[in-house]
């Protein structure tokens, strides 16, 4: 289990002419066992915030702690190791790698730093795929399965490491309503039943019922947070 604490996290981008602030100082704490949805319109800064939480983007200001350890300015290699050990990612597009089978795509999340993959892990891949309704797809190339199945494979890729934190960037936007519900159901179960910290970025109102906590962002700031007792203004339907 892991918790995340953000203190005055802000981010600037240089747009070619001037430095532009896209994320204004934000203070947030994320706890394990709950599914948090970061909602807001395009350009509200939710994906930037997710990237900072995921250690793929450094904040311009502020500090961040992961289970009590400060992770604000980690060196690239250390951040990579931490991503490998602690994080699971589900992207907007499944981002499966052509040329690798479904199983290899999942194992890549474990073996990218060269670690030996024992046979028992392959067995776990099979179990994971079965639990996600993807039995018998292990050997298939990604182009042989549907979009919904691909997104579930990307969830399996995030879960194979048994990560404490799972970050999802618009995981349902490329899916039809039915598949979107299935994916959100899985993420909800992962968060609550397995006591993981799950953060989902979405502007799709259909995912809100799955949220234990809903944070609304606009123009780079948090404008509403159910955990802070600010439920007002959460009608963020796309």
């Amino acid at each position: 289990m892991a918790d995340l604490r953000l203190e005055n996290i802000a981010r600037d981008f240089y747009d070619g002419r001037q430095l532009r602030r896209v994320l204004f100082p934000i203070n947030l704490t994320f706890k394990p066992g709950e599914l948090t949805v970061l909602a807001g319109p395009s350009g509200s800064g939710k994906t930037t915030l997710l990237s900072i939480i995921g250690l793929v983007l450094r904040p311009s200001e502020g500090r961040m702690w992961l289970s009590g350890r400060e992770v604000t300015g980690l060196a690239d290699d250390v951040a990579s190791k931490m991503r490998l050990a602690t994080y699971g990612f589900v992207f907007q597009q499944p981002m499966l790698i052509d040329g690798l089978s479904v199983q290899d795509n999942i194992l890549l999340a474990l073996g990218i730093q060269g670690a030996h993959i024992p046979g028992v892990v392959r067995q776990r891949v099979a179990e994971l795929l079965t639990s996600l309704g993807l039995a018998d797809t292990a050997r298939l190339p990604p182009q042989m399965i549907s979009g919904g199945m691909k997104q579930r494979v990307s969830i399996a890729r995030a879960l194979i490491k048994d990560p404490a934190i799972i970050l999802c960037d618009e995981p349902t936007s490329a899916l039809d309503a039915e598949n979107g519900q299935v994916v959100m159901g899985i993420l909800k179960k992962i968060a609550v039943a397995e006591k993981r910290l799950v953060v989902v970025v979405s502007h799709d109102a259909r995912v809100f019922p799955f949220a234990d906590r809903l944070i609304k962002m606009e123009n780079g700031t948090v404008v509403a947070d159910t955990a802070a007792g600010k439920p007002q203004g959460l009608d963020v339907a796309s």
């Binding site: 793929v56 290699d77 990579s80 190791k81 991503r83 990612f89 790698i97 999340a109 990218i112 890729r157």
Partner: peptide, 12 residues
């Protein structure tokens, strides 16, 4: 980029 996000280092 996906490999890097998943935890791959530049050296990987």
């Amino acid at each position: 980029a996906v490999m890097r996000a998943l935890g791959g280092r530049r050296r990987d």
